[in-house]
């Protein structure tokens, strides 16, 4: 640990974070890298998109995260008849004093689980995405700040395409990281089958953090040292996505900023006193895959292209 975190308060925050991580790992079996991704997105001040089949634990993850963070949490099940007001809230006329009163929607929470986001119409989706981007909601000309920290975990079912509105590429950019959960290993699946329901674990969970601590942690993570070689590496990676033959549109400067932020958060989470290239390498696929637009005729998937970029880009 570096001297920068010498104050005991920071130490306490940090150990609280590690406790929270351990707690979530206890509930979500055998997926430490997914849990790490969730915490990384949180510490980087971004949002997480989980793209996977139903029943692999997306909701459980979001739920466990929200409990352990200690704030309030909301779950929104997206459907195609949903309106933006169902997300952000609505102004209601109050008869007693002839005024409008704002009834906040489910987005007003520290942790929002947006389930099956691709089932809603683009209009409704963009209401949420705008809230994620701005950190505030404007209804009837009135601006309402969202609570801090504000962390959205959205899920999306990639296979069930009938009657869905897949998020447009430009909107995917709002999510800092996109990940999959995947099936558990045979041994872990057996544990899952024999042990009591995960929900009982959730019931037992104690909040390890509180919103203020999370804000402090985000602030600490953002001040982690990033050296020249790592900046060079990040630039080289971004340049590689722009010059790659199979990629139509490479990463934007905003994605570059996001990459630094995420790498810092990842390094911070893993108790590094500086941002090592390993952190960049680890978060890069989750950060880049949904931001790249692949040439369809190349026959390559974005994951393959990213792997190729990671192996060919020299680490300074």
């Amino acid at each position: 640990m570096s001297e920068a975190r010498a104050p005991t308060l920071a130490q306490d925050h940090f150990s609280a974070l590690q406790n929270a991580r351990a707690e979530v790992n206890r509930v979500i079996v055998d997926k430490p890298e997914v849990v790490d991704f969730a915490f990384t997105a949180l510490l980087a001040g971004g949002h997480l998109l989980i793209e996977d089949l139903p029943g692999v634990g997306k909701t459980t993850l979001a739920h466990a995260m929200s409990i352990t963070l200690g704030g309030n949490w909301q779950r929104v099940q997206f459907t195609n008849d949903m309106l933006p007001a169902d997300i952000v809230g609505v102004s209601v006329f109050k008869r007693d004093d002839s005024s409008f009163e704002f009834r906040p929607g489910p987005v007003f929470a520290n942790v929002v689980l947006a389930d099956e986001i691709n089932r809603a119409t683009p209009r409704t989706q963009s209401a949420l995405l705008e809230a994620m981007a701005e950190g505030q909601v404007t209804v009837d000309g009135q601006t309402h700040p969202l609570p801090q920290p504000f962390f959205v975990i959205a899920t999306q079912n990639p296979l069930d395409l009938a009657g869905t509105y897949p998020l447009p590429d430009s909107q995917l950019d709002r999510f800092l990281l996109r990940t999959r959960i995947g099936y558990p290993s045979a041994a872990e699946e057996r544990r899952l089958l024999t042990e009591p329901d995960r929900r009982t674990f959730l019931a037992d969970m104690q909040p390890c953090l509180d919103p203020d601590t999370v804000l402090a942690l985000i602030d600490q993570a953002s001040r982690l040292h990033v050296s020249e070689p790592v900046l060079d590496y990040i630039q080289a990676l971004i340049a590689a996505t722009r010059s790659h033959a199979a990629i139509r549109v490479g990463l934007s400067p905003r994605a570059g900023l996001a990459l630094i932020r995420t790498a810092r958060a990842h390094a911070f989470l893993n108790q590094d006193s500086f941002c090592a290239p390993e952190s960049v390498k680890t978060v890069f696929p989750g950060l880049a895959a949904h931001r790249l637009q692949v040439q369809p005729e190349s026959g390559l998937g974005s994951q393959e292209i990213i792997d190729e970029i990671l192996t060919s880009t020299a680490i300074p």
Binding site: E278, K281, S312, T313, A314, I315
Partner: peptide, 9 residues
Amino acid sequence: KKPGETPRE
């Protein structure tokens, strides 16, 4: 060392 390998890797 492969180009994409970090020192630790």
